[in-house]
Design a protein around this nucleic acid. Structure first.
Lengths: 213, 213, 213, 213
DNA sequence: CGTTAAGCGAGACGGTACGTCCTGTCTTAAC
DNA sequence: GTTAAGACAGGACGTACCGTCTCGCTTAACG
């Protein structure tokens, strides 16, 4: 494709010239970030260390990530992308139980530490917060939605539930334990929460049978 | 006054000599901390700035507070100390409603910002976390306990409730909205949470009447 | 240069009208080097800037010149290559005078700035220093030699002169004024130097007549 | 101490408050600078290295010296401050000879390397150049002046000499050999320069006796 | 009232990490 | 194959804070 202006002929090109971004370097940076942060916490890791660990110049990091938390966010996203498919135990109760236990387990793992660090960064930086919510939090909180909606569709859950509120009642306690660390965070806790909440979710007229004595 | 024991002469002093701690300086430091943090967030405020704003030498700050978050914690405590007495509307539902609305209102106020910043500091520093939990979080989460216990005693709430879980189901969503800012934090939200949770709390056999249509 | 059509961004590239961009690129590089250095000084000019100014890839520069000063050296050489033939006024005094005035004039011109920059580079880099001495300095300092030797041959100058020392006595003050800029550098200065030195050069028994009163 | 003027109270302070500049640190910085630069040359030494060698924070260097060359200049000045008194051999010729040999010796020593590096810095930075000329060069070039003036006063030197030119004829060759390194720089060279120049300086009617055969 | 010791505002200190800049090498798409 | 663009590893730069220390002064209890 050509463009002629005042007798000068220009070619119109779509691609950017120059060396392409080095996928391998990106890989090494994200791995180094993940490893170092899981080990010592985001605030205890410097960009210089990540660069050294990844055998990369600092500028290569700054070229692609504006700040450290942005980098951490990408490292986290990659870590979580290997997402489990939604559970299908056959019953809504079973599905919710599995999902909540998975969240509790993830929060208790090194990945939980990274998420925790990201929450801290989000509090101090609105851009990070925005990214964190959009790319991780919202997606995660909503992952439970289909299960709840399916439960309603199947008639196992009450149709008049405010799912926004319900999902927060189920998951916010887990998040809070991750962030504040005021109480242990185990699958058993997830179970206790679900069992307490179950009566208000279900259409079953004898809810107390699922309640702990 | 001197005291001689085994040929050794001691000076006996009753009060510590030297200049007294400057109450005015302390006041100025805490005010400056509160103002600057509410304005820009704890992580964006330096000790140098606080010292300059308070017209105080840095050493005067470090003499009394070991770290910045310790200072922030004190600034926060002073702000919250004006605690309301527990509500007594006559009904457990009404008391819970009042309490949750108060928490939501506090979280939405500048004080909420300070709490949020403290959460961030807690994540990066275990000592701060310990202090934060002990001096603020636990006390706050447990403030609802007497109301719940009274409700059980009065027979308005089920006796077999796990109050630890219940209080988290009620308050964790508010905390999460403060920290993550993923959804608005209003008194109406507090109401919706309580109304959804109420059926599992109460001994009233017709819980659905309190549910939002 | 970019062109946006229906939200698509295109790059506009000039077509290559002919071939043999080779020599043109070299030309542009040397010109850009000369211009930028004369303007801001060698140490304030980066290779990237030269490449951008010359519309050339950095690699094209590094393909031909190992380092920046090597490039500067070439730029300088090209500038000076237009060397005047040795003067022949008929008298040794006149020839020396012409030559010294020429050097003073060159030092006072933009070319002098480039030479000055090269001296700076030479101090920090032995390879450059070697090149600078070999390709420019020695040749320049020795350019006066034939004149002096001819003067001796003609019997106008003393036969027992140490020409190495003499040429330095004549020219080093000019070099120093170029480098240190401690005093002005004008043809008049060259004259004063020569007139002071003349008595020890000449066989004329009445040297004082050429001395300034 | 307070001072009250028209109902306004002023604090009267005599000295600047705050910690005093650490003389020991300054000493260590200047020594480290001198040592490292004499060893490897100014351009091969980083501020970080100087700070590390001096056991000093980088900021302490930047607090007192705006740039590296400014620091080098101070280090040099301190090195040279231990200046020898002007020589008094009894004869002007002897004094000049001693002085020129001293300069040659200094230029050949590690101090000479530092001066050389400073010349390079001066070429690239006008502020440094200004400082270098004012604090070192001018003072040094003029140090020979009293000797020349005394020579005239005693009648040993011609009264119509342009001392500015004369001192450059004597010393510029030494400077140039320091900077360009095109020829060796020894006391013998200083002698040869002086002996060549002597005839035009002296009132002695038989100058050739001091000339090398 | 003078001594003594702690607190004060100010600011220099040793140190760590930051984010930018430049060098010289390399890789890629367009010609 | 050659060019312009530009990403790469490496490394120095000068800045910003941290938490500590030192200075000259002020304040207050003790003798």
């Amino acid at each position: 494709m050509t463009l002629t202006v005042s007798n000068r002929v220009y070619r119109v090109v779509m691609t950017k010239p120059g060396r392409k971004r080095d996928q391998d370097a990106e890989e090494r940076i994200l791995n180094a970030t993940r490893d170092l942060i899981a080990e010592r916490g985001s605030s205890q890791v410097t960009i210089d260390e990540i660069a050294a660990e990844a055998k990369v110049g600092k500028q290569t990091i700054y070229r692609w990530w504006p700040t450290k938390p942005a980098l951490v966010l990408d490292a986290l996203e990659r870590e979580i992308k290997s997402s489990n498919p939604p559970p299908t135990t056959g019953s809504t109760y079973g599905d919710l139980r599995t999902q909540m236990r998975r969240v509790a387990a993830m929060f208790a793992s090194p990945t939980g530490s990274i998420i925790r660090e990201l929450v801290a960064e989000s509090i101090g930086n609105d851009d990070i917060a925005e990214q964190f919510r959009k790319r991780f939090f919202a997606e995660r909180l909503k992952r439970g939605m289909p299960t709840l909606e399916a439960g309603i569709a199947r008639g196992e859950l009450r149709a008049d539930l405010d799912l926004e509120i319900v999902s927060e009642m189920l998951y916010a306690p887990l998040w809070l334990r991750l962030i504040i660390k005021h109480r242990p965070l185990t699958p058993a806790v997830a179970d206790r929460i679900l069992d307490h909440a179950w009566p208000i979710l279900t259409t079953d007229p004898t809810p107390t049978t699922t309640r702990p004595s």
